[in-house]
Amino acid sequence: MEYKRNLLPKMAIDRLNENPDAVLIDVRTSAEHKYVGFPKNSILIPWFDEPDLNSDPSAFCEAVNNHLSDRSDILGTELILICRSGFRSNEALKCLQSNGFTCVSHVASGFEGDLDENDHRGNLNGWRNDGMPWSQG
């Protein structure tokens, strides 16, 4: 499958199934991960987290590098990022690309998807709404 930057949830699952070395990284906060749920077989590396909720791109890249430290081609590892709606994962994607990672994509609709007409998430699209495997707790 050809590399694409923006993936729909089903496309992300297809990539993960086709490439067992690919890594799905949840970049949401620890609280979101715990209380909202998370994609199965994902790892949590927050783009920012409590208490300050400020992103630290250097710390994020370092955490990704540390997680991949046992791989021979860290920068070439296929990474798929996911957040709530696609915004943070896109910011994290740009950060990783600017630090030499060559195969990074993100779930454009995120875990919870876009806002509906009542400003609620989870009703239009996104990982959970599209029926992708997830867990909570």
Rank of each mutant, 00 (worst) to 15 (best):
P46F: 10
N66V: 02
S30A: 11
Y35Q: 02
E50L: 13
H33N: 12
G76S: 11
D56A: 12
W47N: 00
K40P: 05
D70C: 01
P20N: 09
D14L: 12
S85E: 08
R28C: 06
N6I: 02
G76M: 04
D49Y: 05
R84L: 08
S58F: 15
I13Y: 04
Q97L: 14
C83M: 06
L7V: 00
F87W: 13
E18L: 15
I43Y: 08
N54Q: 15
L16D: 08
L96E: 01
A22W: 09
D21R: 13
S30G: 09
C95D: 11
L53A: 08
T29P: 05
D49W: 03
A12R: 01
A59I: 10
R88K: 12
I74R: 00
V27K: 01
F38T: 05
D26G: 07
A59F: 05
N19D: 15
V36C: 14
E91W: 12
L8R: 08
I80T: 07
I13T: 07
A63T: 00
V27T: 10
P20W: 06
M11R: 10
G86A: 01
G86V: 05
R71E: 01
P20S: 10
N17I: 04
S89Y: 08
K40C: 13
A31K: 12
F60I: 06
I80N: 03
N66F: 09
E91I: 10
E78V: 02
T29W: 05
F60H: 02
F60Y: 09
L68H: 02
S58A: 15
E50N: 12
P46G: 06
I25T: 09
S72D: 14
D70H: 00
L68Q: 04
N54R: 15
N17Y: 08
S72E: 14
C95F: 01
E32K: 00
A22Y: 03
T77F: 04
D49K: 00
S89T: 07
Y35V: 04
H67L: 04
E62G: 10
G37P: 08
T29M: 09
I25K: 10
N41L: 11
F38N: 11
T29L: 00
L44G: 03
I45G: 00
A12G: 03
D49F: 08
F87C: 12
L81W: 07
I43D: 10
V27I: 09
A92Q: 07
D52H: 11
E18A: 15
K10S: 13
N17T: 13
K10A: 15
D21E: 15
I13G: 02
P57F: 09
I82Y: 03
N54C: 10
D52A: 05
V23C: 04
V27S: 04
E32D: 14
I80L: 09
S30L: 04
F38M: 07
I82Q: 02
D70T: 12
G100C: 06
I25V: 14
R15G: 06
F48P: 10
C83S: 14
V64G: 04
V27E: 10
P39A: 15
I82W: 11
